[in-house]
Amino acid sequence: DVEPGKFYKGVVTRIEKYGAFINLNEQVRGLLRPRDMISLRLENLNVGDEIIVQAIDVRPEKREIDFKYIP
């Protein structure tokens, strides 16, 4: 289970104008929005990159997770 405030290693699987989709595993995916990136820009991410993200909002009923990147 993903818990708000905890850090997780994930893989960038898709990049859109509104953010990057990060997979923690095959069943768990969330969104990293540009506003939640500190010292990292969306255009510097590539599909396949491994990054450490912090879960900031977890909505299991909608199967949605918002992430934050903190270097």
Rank of each mutant, 00 (worst) to 15 (best):
I22P: 00
N23S: 14
Q54S: 05
T13D: 06
F21E: 05
P34F: 07
D49N: 06
D49V: 06
E50R: 14
G30N: 02
L24D: 00
G10T: 02
F67D: 01
R14V: 08
E3W: 11
P4C: 10
K17M: 11
I52F: 10
G30K: 01
P4I: 15
E3K: 15
R29C: 09
L42F: 08
Q54P: 00
Y69V: 05
L31K: 03
N23G: 08
L42D: 02
I15A: 00
V58D: 03
E3D: 09
Y69I: 03
E43K: 13
R63F: 14
I65C: 04
Y18R: 06
R63W: 11
Y18W: 14
E26I: 13
E43I: 11
V28A: 08
G30W: 03
R35K: 15
K68E: 04
R35G: 12
N23K: 13
A20H: 01
P4Q: 14
P71F: 05
V28P: 01
L42M: 09
E50T: 15
I56A: 08
F7G: 04
D36Y: 08
E16N: 09
R33I: 03
E43L: 08
E16T: 13
N44F: 11
K17W: 14
Y8G: 00
I22N: 00
G5H: 07
L40D: 04
G10Q: 02
R14T: 06
V47R: 06
T13R: 07
V28D: 09
R59M: 04
V2H: 04
R29V: 13
P34K: 13
D1K: 14
N25A: 12
D66H: 08
G10C: 05
T13Q: 07
I70M: 13
G19V: 05
I15M: 07
V11M: 11
E43N: 11
E43R: 11
E26F: 14
V47N: 04
V28F: 09
G5N: 08
R29S: 12
G30F: 03
L31R: 04
E3M: 14
N44R: 08
V53G: 00
L24H: 02
D57T: 12
G48N: 07
N46H: 15
L45W: 02
F67W: 10
V11P: 00
L24T: 04
R41L: 14
G19T: 02
P60E: 09
N25D: 10
N23T: 12
T13K: 07
V11W: 15
I56H: 08
V58H: 06
R35V: 09
F7E: 05
G30T: 02
K6S: 09
R14W: 08
P4A: 15
D57Q: 15
P60D: 09
Q54I: 13
I52M: 11
G48C: 06
L40T: 07
L24V: 09
P71W: 06
V12M: 01
M37T: 05
K6Q: 12
I22M: 02
E3P: 05
F21D: 02
R14D: 04
F67Y: 02
V47D: 03
D36E: 06
K62Y: 10
D49A: 07
E64M: 11
R14M: 08
M37H: 03
K62H: 10
N25T: 12
E50C: 12
R29D: 07
K17V: 14
G30H: 02
I15R: 04
V58S: 08
Y18K: 06
D57S: 15
D1G: 14
Y69M: 04
Y18V: 07
L45Y: 02
N44D: 15
I56R: 06
G30P: 01
F21P: 00
K62P: 06
L31V: 06
D49H: 05
D36I: 02
V12I: 13
I70G: 08
D57I: 11
R14L: 09
R63N: 15
I65H: 04
L42C: 03
K68C: 07
K17F: 13
F21H: 07
K17I: 12
I56P: 01
V11N: 06
P34S: 11
E50H: 15
V12E: 00
G10A: 04
D36V: 02
R29T: 12
V47M: 08
F7V: 06
K9P: 06
N25G: 11
E16C: 09
P60R: 09
I65D: 02
L31A: 02
K17T: 13
Y69A: 04
V11E: 05
G5T: 05
P34V: 13
Y8E: 00
A55W: 02
E64W: 14
R41K: 15
K62N: 10
I65S: 02
R41W: 09
E61S: 12
D1C: 11
R29W: 15
N25F: 09
I38D: 10
L24Q: 00
I65K: 02
G48H: 06
Y18E: 06
E64K: 08
M37G: 03
Y69K: 02
N44W: 14
L40V: 08
D57M: 14
T13P: 00
F67P: 01
I56G: 07
E26S: 14
I15S: 01
Y69H: 07
L32E: 01
Q54K: 10
K68A: 15
L45T: 02
F7A: 06
E61V: 09
P60N: 09
V47P: 09
R63D: 12
F67R: 01
Y8H: 02
A20T: 03
Y69P: 03
E64Q: 14
I56D: 05
K9H: 12
G19I: 03
L40R: 04
I15Y: 01
S39R: 10
F21M: 09
V53N: 00
P4L: 15
I38G: 15
Y18G: 05
A20Q: 00
D57K: 14
I22Q: 01
P71M: 08
I65R: 02
N25P: 04
V53C: 04
R33D: 02
I70S: 12
G10W: 13
E64V: 08
E50S: 15
D1P: 13
N44L: 10
I22K: 00
K17E: 12
E50W: 15
Q27A: 14
E3A: 11
I15T: 03
L42V: 06
D1M: 14
V53I: 08
Q54L: 15
I15F: 02
E61W: 09
P34D: 07
Q27C: 10
K68N: 04
L45C: 02
D36Q: 07
I52L: 11
I65F: 07
G10L: 03
N46S: 15
G30R: 01
R63V: 08
T13I: 07
P34N: 07
Q54D: 01
A20I: 05
K17G: 10
F7W: 11
Y18T: 05
R33F: 03
T13C: 06
R33A: 04
K62D: 10
V28K: 05
E50L: 15
L40S: 08
I70H: 10
Y8N: 00
K62Q: 12
F67L: 10
R41S: 13
G19C: 03
Y18P: 01
L45I: 11
K6R: 14
F7N: 07
N23A: 14
V12H: 00
P60G: 09
N44M: 14
L31F: 08
V47K: 06
F7H: 07
L31C: 04
L24A: 02
S39M: 13
R14Q: 13
Y18S: 06
E61C: 06
V28I: 14
G19N: 01
M37D: 03
A55M: 05
N46L: 14
R35W: 10
R33L: 04
V28E: 07
N25M: 05
P71D: 09
V58A: 06
R29P: 03
I52R: 10
E3N: 09
